[in-house]
């Protein structure tokens, strides 16, 4: 009985919305009915296209995201550990963060062409700022008593970095990574919409230009599913990395 009620609260509204979609979509050219979209989804994406367009896009996203993480966390730790360096660079970094990342696409097209390096570079240059600034903030706010404890017990060098600095800053680092993920997805799509002959963003825009409306909607649906899946994966990772943080109640403080 309880399971049924949970199922209704969980699936009730989505089912209702799909029904409304169905009713509304009747005669509209721009909004094909759900069945058509699902069929288009199957035909379009569960095919060779998955390997030609979707996976390479995701691969570039992953590559850029990982590179931005290494760069952002690495530099962030350096900057965060030195008050002087932090005071010097903070305004510069704030400026770079304030630049809306998509405007870097035309610039990087000039510098790096329109192929994979440009697209990865775009993702890196957009994702790196939130990670960097959040890491700086996390490292700056490390607990002083813990820092003293490390000094007292001879915890230094790589061990201090691994066991104290990175762990202590991890709540903020994860917050930065979460922001960077949504920026990364946006940039993955935009870089392909611009000048490209393959990839998810390119394909969806192509459908739109050719008025393949159902296919276009299926692309939007796919992007939604990708966003959902990545945010789910991220949450799993976050739960794992920060279990101590949620457990200790520090998250609520």
């Amino acid at each position: 009985m309880r399971a049924l009620r949970r199922a209704v609260t969980w699936f009730g509204l989505p089912v209702l919305l799909v029904l409304v979609w169905w009713l509304v979509s009747g005669g509209s050219f721009y909004l094909p009915d759900p069945l058509k979209v699902v069929r288009a989804f199957w035909d379009t994406w569960v095919s060779a296209r998955a390997f030609e367009d979707v996976l390479p896009s995701l691969g570039r996203l992953l590559l850029g995201y990982v590179a931005a993480t290494l760069l952002g966390v690495g530099l962030g730790v350096l900057v965060g550990l030195s008050p002087r360096l932090r005071a010097t660079l903070e305004p510069v970094l704030e400026f770079f963060r304030a630049i809306p990342p998509p405007v870097l696409v035309p610039l990087l097209m000039l510098l790096a062409g329109i192929d994979t390096p440009m697209k990865v570079l775009v993702i890196v240059s957009g994702c790196v700022w939130p990670i960097l600034l959040n890491t700086v903030e996390g490292v700056r706010a490390l607990d002083e008593v813990l820092a003293d404890t490390c000094r007292m017990y001879g915890v230094r060098g790589g061990s201090r970095l691994r066991r104290f600095v990175l762990r202590g800053a991890s709540p903020q680092i994860m917050a930065g990574l979460r922001q960077a993920l949504s920026i990364g997805i946006i940039l993955m799509v935009i870089s392909e919409m611009f000048a490209s002959s393959s990839g998810l963003g390119f394909t969806i825009v192509l459908f739109q230009r050719q008025f393949q409306i159902a296919e276009m909607w299926s692309g939007i649906l796919l992007l939604g599913l990708i966003g959902l899946a990545l945010s789910f994966l991220f949450r799993l990772l976050e739960r794992r990395v920060l279990s101590w943080y949620y457990g200790s109640g520090a998250a609520r403080a």
Partner: peptide, 29 residues
């Protein structure tokens, strides 16, 4: 030399277990 600080809540590493906390200085040594 070892120190026990007043702020017990802040001198232990919250991401480590009790055992890991006690063991860490020994590892460094």
């Amino acid at each position: 030399m070892a120190v026990v600080f007043q702020e017990y809540g802040r001198s232990l590493f919250p991401w480590m277990t009790v055992r890991q906390n006690v063991e860490l200085p020994l590892k460094e040594k």
